[in-house]
Simulated scan of single mutants.
Amino acid sequence: MPEFVRRVLCHVFTAVYPKWFPLDRSIKKRCIFGISDSTIPNGTDIVATAVETAKPVAQLSPEKGSKHYLIQDFELWNTSEVEVRSTYRMGMSNIVVSDWLAELVRNEASADPSLIKDWVDEGTFYPERDVTRHKNEVAVLYHVDKHKGFCDLFEALKTVKAKYPELVVNAFGTPPRPNLFPDWIRYTQAATPEQLREIYSRSLVFACATINEGFGLTLPESMFCGCALVSTKFQGVWEYASEDCALLSNVGDSEELAGNILRLLNDPDFAGELANKGRQHAMSECSREKAEEAIKKEFGVGGA
């Protein structure tokens, strides 16, 4: 693609996106090409949000603002482990979204990071009173990245369908509907928050087979909406769930995952009890108030 065309498209994308949540109109967006003192305006604070941006942000002059580094996962997909770990020691104020990342970064940087857990908006995600929860329906996220474990989840769902023919799966994701989906899997592409709330509210169970992930936001969203959670024991799940309020299986064990789904489908009353416990626990761990207080403390605003 010619450089001129690429830059024009980047400016258009910057103006239009993000679309997955309502960005406050007071926020000004800038399209820049490279992170340097010549492209970044002076300010009070600057935040690196990925491994790729950490080093250039750390090298900026002090006039660009206090430097923060938002760490949302152990980002090994494009960079070596040695390089990822080195970014934690660049002298910025490290921010993590989960307890397990806090321990990882603390051990590497020899300093406590700020913990700002991902939060769920209870004004958006709640059980819809006008939507009937169906005892045969399971909600899932479809994702193509290997670490999301959808291949394991799909195998588990096929096992469940063979033993529980009434199963209906409410899937959602950003890619187009894959050809491999049978007709008992409904699919919503690029679901809005309102569509997600409806999907969660009509489903008895939310099922997840993630291999590794820093947090996994769709899981507590579903719990806020009253789904009983069935998941693998990936590191992020412990941020909002426990074995007291969810059915958790070993990573990669699709048979165990299928068994847990079947257990809830065959006992909707138990599923409801588990969902109530899970909702209370997730709401206490992923509250907006906790996140806002942590943000205020990190950036020194709002009197915190």
Rank of each mutant, 00 (worst) to 15 (best):
L265F: 02
P175F: 01
Q59P: 05
R279P: 01
E239M: 05
L115D: 01
S114D: 04
A275P: 03
Y126V: 09
W184C: 03
C10M: 12
E128S: 05
A241P: 00
A109Y: 04
L60M: 09
I32D: 10
V12C: 12
E256K: 15
E83P: 02
D121W: 12
L104M: 06
K290D: 15
G214R: 08
H11R: 06
G216K: 15
Y17H: 06
A209M: 08
P62N: 05
R6H: 00
T218V: 00
Q195Y: 03
I32W: 05
V84Q: 13
K67M: 02
Y142K: 10
A291N: 14
V205F: 09
T218R: 12
D73F: 06
V237F: 02
P113S: 04
A156I: 11
T53C: 09
A258L: 03
S36D: 08
L60W: 06
S110Q: 02
A275M: 03
Q72E: 06
T192G: 03
V169C: 09
D37M: 14
S98N: 12
K290G: 09
N78F: 04
L248Y: 01
Y88H: 01
D24Y: 04
I40D: 15
G216V: 06
P178T: 03
L101W: 00
P2N: 14
S284G: 10
L23F: 00
E75Y: 07
G300M: 09
F215V: 10
D24T: 10
F74Y: 15
F154N: 01
E155N: 05
V47W: 13
P268M: 02
E128R: 07
K290R: 12
F206R: 06
V12S: 13
E108F: 01
P193D: 00
L70G: 13
I295S: 14
D37G: 14
R263C: 08
E166S: 12
N107L: 07
I95Y: 00
F270I: 08
I295H: 15
A15T: 00
G302M: 12
Y142N: 02
S249Y: 02
F4R: 11
E293D: 14
K296Y: 03
V57P: 08
G65Q: 07
S66G: 11
E194S: 04
G252T: 11
F150D: 13
V5R: 15
S249A: 01
I35E: 13
P268A: 14
K296P: 00
L115M: 03
R85Y: 03
D37H: 05
D99K: 13
E3G: 14
T44E: 10
L196W: 01
L274I: 00
H147I: 00
S231Y: 07
T79M: 11
A190G: 07
E75D: 08
E255G: 05
M90W: 04
R197H: 06
S222K: 12
D145S: 06
L141C: 07
L76C: 08
S254M: 06
E298G: 11
A102R: 07
E239K: 10
S242G: 15
K28A: 12
L229E: 01
G303W: 04
A162Y: 10
A294S: 12
A241G: 01
C286H: 01
M223N: 04
W238T: 07
